[in-house]
C-alpha cells in the first residue's frame, strides 16, 4: 500500500479496509462465530450486544469512587451502601446483575482486602474489569494466607493493632472496600474527594493517601 498521504487511491482504499485488531487468536474468532450465529437465530440482537459493550466500557473505578466520596460526606448514604450495596449503587445506574455488592468499611481497627481464591470474582459492573494481578495465581494463592506480606508489596504497611480482614469472594457477593477518608480533607468538595479515591484502595491493597 502507498505511504503517500496525498495519494487519492490510498484514501479510497482505506475506506474499505476493516479496522480490526492486529492479531486475532482462535478464540477471538470463535467468539465472533458464536455471536453471529446466535444473533442470526434471534437469541439476542446486534443492538443488545452493542449495549452490553457500552455498559462494559462505562464501568470503572470512577463509579466506585463516586459511591465512596458520597459515603464520606453523606451518613445516610453510607448507611445504605453498607447495608444494601447493590441498591445504593443503582442510584448511579449500576446494575450488579446476578451478583450482589457487599461493601466492607475500613476503620482505625480493621483493614479489609478482597481476593477470590477460586476464580476471579470482582464487582465488574461497578469497578470495571479487574487488574491482571487480581486474576493472577500469585495474588490468589498468597493474599489469603500472608496478607500482610502481599500488602507490603503494594507499599501498604498497617499500624500495630489493626486487624487485617481478608474477604475471599466465593459465591454471590462481590466486594468493595470503603476506604478511610484521609486526614486533611475536611475542606474538600465531594468531587475533589472522588478524585482522591483509586481502584486499589477499593480492593483494599492500598489506602487512600492524604492529598
Amino acid at each position: 500500500m502507498s505511504t503517500n498521504v496525498d495519494d487519492h487511491d490510498h484514501d479510497h482504499a482505506r475506506t474499505f479496509v476493516p479496522d480490526e485488531e492486529d492479531s486475532l487468536g482462535q478464540y477471538a474468532i470463535v467468539e465472533m462465530a458464536v455471536r453471529e450465529l446466535l444473533i442470526e437465530k434471534g437469541v439476542f440482537s446486534a443492538d443488545e450486544f452493542r449495549q452490553g459493550l457500552e455498559v462494559f466500557d462505562k464501568a470503572g473505578p470512577h463509579l466506585g469512587a463516586r459511591a465512596v466520596a458520597r459515603a464520606w460526606t453523606d451518613p445516610a448514604y453510607k448507611e445504605s451502601l453498607l447495608s444494601d450495596g447493590s441498591a445504593a449503587v443503582k442510584e448511579f445506574g449500576v446494575d450488579m446483575n446476578l451478583t450482589e455488592l457487599y461493601v466492607v468499611e475500613n476503620t482505625p481497627r480493621v483493614h479489609n482486602v478482597i481476593v477470590c481464591t477460586l476464580c476471579s470474582c470482582y464487582p465488574k459492573p461497578l469497578l470495571g474489569a479487574p487488574p491482571d494481578w487480581y486474576k493472577s495465581r500469585n495474588y490468589r494463592s498468597r493474599m489469603v494466607r500472608e496478607p500482610r506480606a502481599v500488602l507490603a508489596e503494594f507499599g501498604t504497611t498497617l499500624p500495630d493493632g489493626v486487624e487485617v480482614r481478608v474477604h475471599d469472594s466465593t459465591a454471590t457477593m462481590r466486594y468493595m472496600v470503603l476506604p478511610m477518608r484521609p486526614e486533611g480533607t475536611a475542606d474538600l468538595t465531594r468531587e475533589q474527594l472522588e478524585a482522591l479515591v483509586n481502584r486499589d484502595a477499593m480492593i483494599g491493597v492500598t489506602v487512600v493517601p492524604a492529598p
Binding site: 485488531e21 486475532l24 487468536g25 478464540y27 477471538a28 467468539e31 465472533m32 458464536v34 455471536r35 450486544f49 452490553g52 459493550l53 462494559f56 466500557d57 465488574k124 474489569a129 487488574p131 491482571d132 494481578w133 493472577s136 495465581r137 500469585n138 495474588y139 494463592s141 498468597r142 502481599v150 508489596e153 503494594f154
Partner: peptide
C-alpha cells in the same frame, strides 16, 4: 507462590467481546 507482578494490560477489544457475550 511468588511475588505479585503488578504490571497491567488494557483489555483488548476481543477480550471485551468475550466478556459481553
Amino acid at each position: 507462590a511468588g511475588p505479585v507482578d503488578r504490571s497491567e494490560h488494557v483489555l483488548e477489544p476481543w477480550e471485551k467481546r468475550v466478556d459481553v457475550l
